[in-house]
Amino acid sequence: MLVLAMFKCFWRFPGGEHFTVSIRGREFLQHSGENFHFKFFQYLGSNEFYVGSTFYKNLQLNVPHELGGPGSVAGVHLELDGIDNSRRAKGFVCLERGGDYPKGVIFCAEEKAFSLIAMFDFKNN
């Protein structure tokens, strides 16, 4: 089964530099029990970025859920240039559609590093 994704990210850095990245048709999504996970790795300019996330499949829809650490309903792990910056990025996720093929938005920020807004839409093809 191929999971198609529309994944659009807006990255902003303290010096004002910013990037917009759109990706379609790549496999990002994984399922494990009551959770779904997706991972994204990208080179932007001279830097490499990694975002990994875990969410409960059945989060209440259209409600912002605060990102937390392990065991919380939603979490995001950020890395810049291979350095493990944060496993507990501050921010929120809001799902428009849950279940096995979620759709929603994530906002998160790592103090003095970067901020990210990611819109995602996973579809079963």
Rank of each mutant, 00 (worst) to 15 (best):
R12F: 09
H31F: 02
Y56H: 06
E17S: 14
H37V: 03
F41H: 14
N47P: 08
G52F: 00
V21K: 07
S53P: 04
S22R: 11
F13Q: 02
G16Y: 07
E17Y: 12
A5R: 07
R12K: 10
G15C: 11
F28D: 05
F55N: 01
G15Q: 14
L44R: 01
M6E: 09
E27K: 08
G45Y: 03
K8I: 10
G25F: 00
K8T: 08
W11G: 02
Y50G: 06
E34H: 10
S32M: 04
Y43N: 13
M6R: 14
V21I: 06
F13G: 03
F28R: 11
S46L: 12
R24I: 14
H37L: 10
S32D: 12
F7G: 02
E27F: 06
F55H: 04
L29T: 01
T54G: 04
L4R: 09
R24D: 09
R24V: 09
S46E: 15
H18V: 10
G33H: 02
G15H: 12
F36C: 01
G25I: 01
E48G: 14
N47E: 14
F55P: 00
Q30G: 06
S46R: 11
E17F: 05
F49H: 13
K8S: 07
K8W: 05
K39C: 09
W11D: 03
M6F: 12
E27H: 10
C9K: 05
A5Y: 05
H18P: 13
T20W: 15
K8L: 04
F19Y: 08
L29E: 00
F7S: 02
Y43W: 10
L44V: 03
M6D: 11
E27A: 10
F41I: 07
C9V: 09
F7E: 03
L44N: 00
F19W: 07
P14E: 05
F38V: 04
F19R: 01
F55Q: 00
S46G: 12
K39N: 12
F10Y: 15
